[in-house]
Amino acid sequence: MTDTLRPGTTTGPAPERVSFFATATAQRLLAFASLIVMVIVFSVLSPNFMQTSNIIAILQAASVNGVLAIAVTLIIITGGIDLSVGTMMTFCAVVTGVVLTNMGMPLWTGVIAAILTGACAGFASGTFVARMMIPPFIATLGMMMILRGLSLITTGARPIYFNNTPGFDQISRGSLVGQVFPSVPVPNGVLILFAVAIAVSFILNRTVLGRYTYALGSNEEAMRLSGVNTAAWKTAIYTLAGAIVGIAGLLIASRLNSAQPALGMGYELEAIAAVVIGGTSLSGGRGTVLGSLIGALIIAVLANGLRVLSVAQEWQIVAMGAIIIAAVYADQLRRQKTG
């Protein structure tokens, strides 16, 4: 009866080895594998799918949602949820429009305005959640409506165009890479997405702020009892997420070369979908930027692939919903295995 023996174990009788398939890495690999499978299926079904221009269109489409998803990832790891990122993004774009077009300020002030506006809005959400103890779902639902209203009021419900600011559209549509390698004109928007992803990954993995993001989602009370000012750190995380949403606001405004005040609703759900597909737990404490990035790509590939195949847009929405449920179900199966 030596089958129970694990010689050399010094850490007690608790199960030492967890099956690989039960790890969070497995969930991310699963998502990545689905992405690859999707790409293969679509390229077999349609010769147009794998063309450079189409790939770039997919990446371009994923960039805004990807940045938003990264912001939402931060919030979800703390155990919260953010419903306001879509309209917050729009509001940031609108403020940029006011600064650049209505006030005629130079380009860089518009960039700072967008990021600062996002940070302020995030700070407000964070204050509601961390100091006033309003549940994140409600606090950000309120913020979603407030920001949408403010966007419409500021603009009189009319779009603001950036025709007076040459170069603004280059933020997203230009291609620094294309200037060096003309055959791969990767748009700047995609570069910005990757830059944000790398920066936030670093913050999550290596800095105090990142460590506390996981700790908050894991056991906030334990953290408070350890003498950590949990409210301040939580507010900081919401503020950072807001600043990232500001970057998304810049990307969308630049891509459309305009600030569209009516836009924004629905983006938050797509971002949350990307995060969930990427294996981040809605109960907090776990999650990665890479996962959310893959999630955003899956959504973009699916939308693009179905469009290339001329599937009606209504069915694209149905497919998206099915994928979300499948992703979370896969996660559930994984959890049951861990017990």
Binding site: L209, R211, G217, S218, A222, M223, R286
Partner: peptide, 23 residues
């Protein structure tokens, strides 16, 4: 009151992590 998703060391030093450059 430990945080399950953090490692042993991370739990022990929560709130006073040794740091480079302050962050």
């Amino acid at each position: 009151s430990l945080m399950n998703d953090l490692t042993v060391a991370q739990n022990i030093f929560i709130g006073r992590e040794p740091r480079h450059f302050g962050f």
